[in-house]
Design a protein around this nucleic acid. Sequence first.
DNA 1: TTTTGAGTTGTTCGA
DNA 2: GTCGAACAACTCAAA
Length: 448
Amino acid sequence: MPSVVWFRRDLRLTDHPALCEAVAGDDGIVPLFVLDPALLGPAGGPRVAFMLDCLRALDTDLDGDLVVRTGDPADVVPALAREVEASAVYTSADFNPYGRRRDEKVAGALGDVPLQPIGSPYAVSPGRIRKPDGEPYRVYTPYYRAWREHGYPRPAPRPDRITTVSGLRSDPLPPAPDIGDTALPQAGEQAALRRWADFRDERLLSYADDRNRPDIPSTSRLSAYLRWGCIHPRTPLADLSGRTGKGAEVFRKELAWREFYADVLLHQPDSAREHLQPRYARLEVDAGKSADERFTAWTEGRTGYPIVDAGMRQLRAEAWIHNRIRMVVASFLIKDLHLGWKEGARHFMRHLVDGDLASNQHGWQWVAGSGTDASPFYRVFNPVKQGQKFDPDGDYVRRYVPELRKVEGAAVHTPWELPEQPAGYPAPIVAHDEERREALERYEAVKG
DNA sequence: TTTTGAGTTGTTCGA
DNA sequence: GTCGAACAACTCAAA
């Protein structure tokens, strides 16, 4: 009897424990991907388009034997299992709130055929790292120490031979959503491995110094690949283990942040929707027509603050934003426009190619100060300062804001000081100094 | 149980 | 221009 390998956020063949386990059986595997409308709906065009490309790449790597089926996994997976008389369904564990509910339903619907979760999208699965008293960590740094202490396995090799069952019905992939000119990364496992190798060899050494620079290619840009599991974090982590440089340590910490937030979300599933710290429900948030207009200006990159607008336009152009700039635009939405983090987080999830629930929701809450960080509430990003510091020559702004292309150097961060206003570029929609004070007052009111 | 030290990513102000 | 202090108080982790 063959076994089914149900792919979800693990669209690769290398270092795939569930796949390894399945191919150890004698009768071949049925590789399956389920197009689940409940997940595809909110995913947003770029992420779906990228996923479809990854599925094509995976199908190619499987000699065209990937079985795609559309529908509720609780129907689709058991139906296929019966169809091929599967002995088991192997899969990587999913720890997101929806994924856990779904897998419980699927396991129930499968009856006697076991649903075997093996491995997960993390080096250390969420829930594994605990304090000595058995409680989960709520603060990153001690979590990181425990995570390092815990360790993680080396990557598993790609199976020598993958015998697939051929000739099964497979639904055609839906047409890619219209994403206009948005430039997506090259999809698939091979592209992910190349991307990692390039980063490791070219930029890791200077990563600690340059990672906050959006104007130069300083980051790994692995996020979309990690999101869909084209690469498992074990692969970079194994390469890092032999390196002592600061860049290696800082990059390892970034990977650990992803794991920390997944752990927090596992223990506090509601934190995907609500503030982790409940008192922030009291934070005053603007609503109404003017708030809606400010939100729209933010999404369209028309706030009049060049670094913010460049970030929001990069999101449209590439379905991705440099991490530093994510913080800047998030801080602007929350503390300059006085809008809720949830709106911003939802917008990111709709438009990011790498949108990951745990990292996104908790990244936003980090900025809002309502998450795991013991954030000093007076930490308000100054959009001009951030621009001058991290985009010192203004190259990043000019790349994404054509109205400002003729402005030279760092002057691009303060267009209102130019003798002549650049045509078509808006004046600042709010005065940062005033809104900073306003934000501090509102946060003050939430204290205690 | 109590105590102590520490907490990703900042900004402003005054010396 | 550079530097340190102030911006508060609280929660968490660990001794």
